[in-house]
């Protein structure tokens, strides 16, 4: 019987360490730091400035007329479900920084009548590239068209993604950004906010 006692302790240890009820950590961004700006041109350090809040992030470019607005709409729906909560920050981060300047993002935000805890972020191309790599968001120019005013406009293939960071800047949930039913995101957030 004595010889089983260490084994019993070991079982208890495993039960308490491996079966915690929190979500799995997909990526830990707490050691990352990106200097970006929001739609007002105000400097933001991502994700550091949002530590202590849950962060729901979608990845978009504003010249995308179909999929990216769906991503943004899903973020808005989640925000409305929680009635603009103080402990959840909503972000749209562009992967097209050359065109998505703070001014453009401000106009884009204006289309959706969003409040203060919903920001759009951009930065220089190098920073955005590093940020997108760290969250495994891919994008590439798919095709270019010449408009009637002889200006070229390009379109992009891109990851379709929404993710949730916990209060320690760890990615705990990822979703198909335009396709996931909003109630999945809401349920997951409700689970971790308890």
């Amino acid at each position: 019987m004595k010889s089983l006692f260490p084994s019993f302790l070991c079982i208890l240890f495993i039960l308490f360490t491996s079966c915690n009820t929190g979500p799995k950590v997909i990526d830990d961004l707490s050691d990352k730091s990106f200097n970006v700006v929001n739609q007002n041109g105000e400097p933001v350090t991502f994700p550091d400035d949002y530590q202590g809040k849950y962060v729901v992030v979608g990845f978009i470019y504003t010249n995308c007329p179909d999929i990216c607005p769906l991503v943004t709409q899903n973020l808005i729906k989640v925000q409305k479900e929680f009635n603009n909560p103080d402990d959840i920050q909503f972000l749209g981060i562009t992967f097209d920084p050359n065109r998505d300047t703070p001014e453009v993002l401000k106009s884009y935000k204006g289309l959706f009548n969003l409040d203060d805890n919903f920001d759009f972020l951009t930065a220089d191309s190098t920073t955005i590239s590093e940020l997108m790599d760290s969250v495994r968001v891919r994008s590439q120019v798919s095709f270019t068209q010449v408009r009637e005013d002889d200006k070229e406009v390009y379109f992009m293939n891109h990851s379709d993604k929404i993710m949730v960071l916990d209060k320690k800047s760890r990615v705990i949930f990822e979703y198909g950004g335009s396709m996931t039913p909003v109630n999945y995101i809401v349920e997951d957030l409700n689970t971790v906010r308890k």
Partner: peptide, 18 residues
């Protein structure tokens, strides 16, 4: 200035495309 019909689709490498 320009109007076209486009289609959103998923590429072979799982990107959202148009």
């Amino acid at each position: 200035m320009m109007t076209q019909i486009h289609e959103s689709y998923t590429t072979e490498d799982d990107l959202a495309g148009m």
